[in-house]
């Protein structure tokens, strides 16, 4: 079973249809780019998949669990990192790791092992006792991602994870995403940067609540006879 399956997934707020019968599947270990202009319905769709919003109609399965009835199991199987920075600035690096490990139900021993691994991997053993607020933004972002996959989720949702980060750090951040994907984690990522869309295995583009295109970046570019993903996006978003 694929890690994310939706069939005619719809969310209405009163008369407004935020997400209009979207159907797609995400393959295991894939980096799936979820693109769309602001207000196209990306966030609503993502919130339904994370168990934060109840869909109005349609079906959705995340990590094999039904998002209507098994939200608890869904939540245990996913990691989440939002566009807004998700660590506590007034807690130290170590305390943040311990907190997130703790609320995902890891034991103290597991947390200890994971913390050591993580600090070593990011090369910030020395900064472990520092308040997160004192770290440079790039480090925070990487730490944030590492914390989101601390509990080894099957899927990790990244909501515009690289907003406001310099190009070098963005590149390093994507290296981390690749590494996670290689180790089997499915990555579901929304972004505004079209160059990042090129890094994804497959990309979907939402316009006005519907998925207008879904394919590999290469296939999309040839289909729309565009040089870059940016051109593809503009063609679709400007509306035919």
């Amino acid at each position: 079973m694929n890690p994310i399956i939706t069939r005619s997934l719809t969310k209405k707020f009163g008369n407004f249809i935020a997400t209009n019968a979207i159907t797609f599947e995400v393959l295991p270990g894939e980096i799936f780019g979820f693109l769309g202009a602001n207000g196209a319905g990306k966030t609503t769709a993502m919130r339904m998949l994370c168990g934060l919003l109840k869909p109005s109609s349609g079906e959705a399965f995340v990590a094999g669990y039904n998002v209507y009835t098994q939200t608890e199991k869904v939540k245990k199987s996913i990691g989440y990192m939002s566009q807004r920075f998700s660590l506590y600035e007034d807690l130290t690096v170590k305390e943040n790791i311990r907190f997130y490990g703790g609320i995902y139900g890891l034991s103290n021993q597991q947390i200890k092992d994971k913390t050591a691994q993580l600090l070593q991997k990011l090369g910030i053993e020395k900064e472990a006792g520092q308040l997160v607020g004192a770290l440079p933004l790039g480090w925070k972002q990487k730490l944030s991602f590492s914390v989101a996959i601390l509990h080894d989720p099957a899927i990790v949702f990244l909501d515009e994870p690289t907003g406001g980060v310099d190009p070098v750090t963005r590149r390093q951040f994507w290296d981390m995403i690749y590494e996670a994907a290689n180790s089997g984690v499915t990555v579901f990522v929304t972004t505004h940067y079209m160059d990042e869309a090129e890094y994804c295995n497959r990309v979907s583009i939402m316009v006005d609540g519907k998925i207008e295109a879904l394919d590999t970046p290469v296939a999309l570019k040839s289909h729309y006879q565009a040089d870059t993903m940016n051109d593809v996006f503009l063609q679709l978003a400007r509306g035919k």
Binding site: S86, I103, G105
Partner: peptide, 13 residues
Amino acid sequence: ELGTMEILLVSPL
């Protein structure tokens, strides 16, 4: 305001 509430709500808590 900090956006951490969302993270908490996505967690199994």
